[in-house]
């Protein structure tokens, strides 16, 4: 059973501090690495992005993220890894992606975090619709 990845709406900042707090009992950890994706108010042809609406092929996305997570555990000396991604409409400035890796030492935590973020962006069927201030939209393309 894949882990629950998707959160309806923005990721509340409290979720990050709660996650950190939950790891205080795991005293074999020496370093955490955290990536937070935030909705950027890009400007396209003079119009600002006000929100991104995310949809996903959820069953496939959860399986693929599980696979990527397993790859990360094989490649790096990780204690744990947690991944969350938003679905639905997320306003500019809000958080939509949270990747949290922990290890005995900083290097593995950092490298695994970067690996997870990059692979998820490339391999997971999640789709972002950028919504502009005048209610028009365009489909986001990852760079």
């Amino acid at each position: 059973m894949p882990k629950k990845i998707f959160i309806q709406g923005a990721i509340p900042p409290e979720k990050i501090s709660d996650s950190i707090a939950k790891h205080q009992s795991k005293t074999e950890i020496g370093g955490h690495s955290i990536f937070l994706g935030q909705i950027r108010a890009d400007e396209v042809d003079g119009k600002a992005v006000t929100a991104i609406e995310y949809t996903a092929y959820e069953e496939m996305a959860e399986k693929e993220i599980d696979k990527i997570r397993e790859e990360a555990f094989e490649k790096f000396d990780l204690t744990c890894a947690h991944i969350y991604h938003s679905l639905g409409k997320i306003q500019a400035g809000e958080l939509c992606f949270f990747v949290f890796t922990s290890s005995a030492h900083r290097k593995a935590a950092r490298e695994a975090n970067q690996f997870l973020v990059d692979e998820i962006k490339e391999r997971v069927p999640i789709f972002g619709k950028e919504i502009f201030e005048d209610e028009t939209h365009q489909w986001k393309v990852n760079r």
Binding site: Y57, V117, V141, N142
Partner: peptide, 24 residues
């Protein structure tokens, strides 16, 4: 839910058409 599939389909298959991914 397997990417890059080709060839014959079976009764009951689920086929998904996916545009470029843009998560994160």
């Amino acid at each position: 839910q397997n990417m890059g599939a080709s060839g014959p389909l079976q009764d009951g298959d689920e086929v998904a058409f996916l545009p470029p991914f843009s998560g994160g």
